[in-house]
């Protein structure tokens, strides 16, 4: 904050020089001010900017970005591959009903727990 009035007494014998110095302050040209303004606008953050395809952008961000999408894609491909060409071991397991019961995540025990 400018405090020239209160400073004048502190200027002492140099008051006339400081006063002249304050009045002779250089002013920037209009062109230069336009350049400064252009810089300010050019570098201004645009946090609310929406671009085309932003729905996909939002979905991508919601899923956790490209690394997550890559992981999901790999998992999906693996699932499709296993479905198309299941390993022999899996076929054996599927034919054995007891194995399926052992790995059933919603077994009778879980239902009992959910029922309180």
């Amino acid at each position: 904050m400018m405090t020239h009035d209160t400073n004048t007494s502190a200027d002492g014998d140099l008051a006339a020089f400081f006063d002249a110095g304050r009045q002779a302050g250089e002013s920037p040209t209009g062109d230069f001010m336009m350049r400064l303004e252009a810089d300010a606008l050019r570098l201004q953050p645009v946090p609310q900017a929406r671009t085309r395809g932003s729905v996909w952008g939002d979905l991508l961000r919601g899923l956790g970005g490209w690394p997550t999408v890559a992981g999901l894609t790999a998992a999906a491909c693996a699932g499709v591959w296993i479905g198309v060409s299941p390993p022999d071991l899996m076929l054996t397991m599927l034919q054995d009903q007891s194995v399926i019961q052992n790995v059933d995540p919603l077994s009778g025990y879980d239902y009992a727990m959910l029922g309180g």
Binding site: E26, F32, M33, P45, V46, P47
Partner: peptide, 23 residues
């Protein structure tokens, strides 16, 4: 306001601070 994208704030800050810094 400038950081939130207000163009008026960009102009006002430039007009206020530019001459002062330059001087």
């Amino acid at each position: 306001l400038y950081a939130r994208g207000d163009a008026g704030a960009a102009r006002a800050l430039t007009a206020r601070l530019g001459p002062r810094v330059f001087s």
